[in-house]
């Protein structure tokens, strides 16, 4: 697992809304990615993120949803509002059961790309959010978890 320093662990207690599950499948990707953006925007507004932070979170989710589709062959996003006692935040977890990423360190290197993209998906999204953790096993799949906190 590679994460931002100081990021809370996935198992840590947080209270908030019940998670919503949203499939991201290859079929009608258009509708799916758009739906992801709408859902993320709605929860970002509900968590009282500023307009700029909403925009960053929605953009990060859009990049990650596209990764899930293009590289993971489809998957799902779980999203909820979290509360660490001081602030609200939006947490989104993208999961696919695709080929996985053999070298996470390399994939998170600035400017690295597998060839078909611009290499912004992971590194770019990581810069847009407050917490970023990724788990990936070749042959099993990839899970990316991001959180954006209200200021």
């Amino acid at each position: 697992m590679i994460g931002n320093p100081g990021g809370s662990l996935p198992g840590r207690e947080m209270t908030g809304t019940d998670p919503q599950r949203h499939p991201i499948v290859t079929e009608s990707d258009v509708v799916r990615v758009r739906r992801v953006r709408q859902v993320v925007r709605a929860l970002a507004v509900a968590a009282k993120l500023s307009l700029v932070d909403q925009t960053k979170m929605v953009t990060a989710a859009s990049e990650l949803a596209r990764n899930t589709l293009v590289y993971g062959g489809g998957g799902e996003m779980m999203i909820d509002i979290v509360d660490n006692g001081r602030r609200h935040g939006v947490r989104a977890v993208f999961t696919d059961t695709g080929p996985g990423i053999p070298d996470l360190g390399l994939a998170l290197t600035e400017g690295w790309t597998s060839g078909s993209g611009l290499g912004l998906g992971l590194t770019g999204s990581r810069r847009l959010v407050d917490e970023f953790t990724i788990d990936s096993s070749p042959g099993v799949g990839t899970t990316v978890r991001v959180v954006k906190w209200s200021r």
Binding site: L51, V52, Q54, T55, K56, T59, E63, E110, L118, L120, T123, G124, S125, R127, L128
Partner: peptide, 14 residues
């Protein structure tokens, strides 16, 4: 381009 979009693009590194 909206201001929030510009800020996000810079941070995204695009």
């Amino acid at each position: 381009m909206r201001p929030a979009v510009a800020i996000t693009l810079v941070e995204l590194g695009l």
